[in-house]
Amino acid sequence: MSIKIDRDKCISCGRCRNICPGNLIETDEAGKAVMKYPSECWGCTACLKECPAGAVRYYLGADIGGRGGYLFTGNHSDHTDWFIVSADGTKYQIKISKKESNRY
């Protein structure tokens, strides 16, 4: 369970570092975000939701059944787009409005 940061997409805003509840993300000399403690990630997705550049990917470790699929988010004021790419490359998109309650 962890996240990966795409260095090329990262615009060095520092928001993911500022938000992580575990203080796990640091920045390098160029101000780019670096996931410093991959095995200490709780998987809360706070950093994904904070990132303005869609540079953070979320994946499951192989120890909990991860097979290379991943998830990232598109963040908007009224809704969140969740993009999931499965291990075989199938793409899913689920849009959730912030005004829509859980049914269960």
Binding site: I64, S86, R103
Partner: peptide, 23 residues
Amino acid sequence: QMELFKAYLNMAPAQTLKWLERN
């Protein structure tokens, strides 16, 4: 099933990823 996918994305996204990663 879709409601469950959404509910988990709203609080424990790993579960939805676990399902969909395997289609």
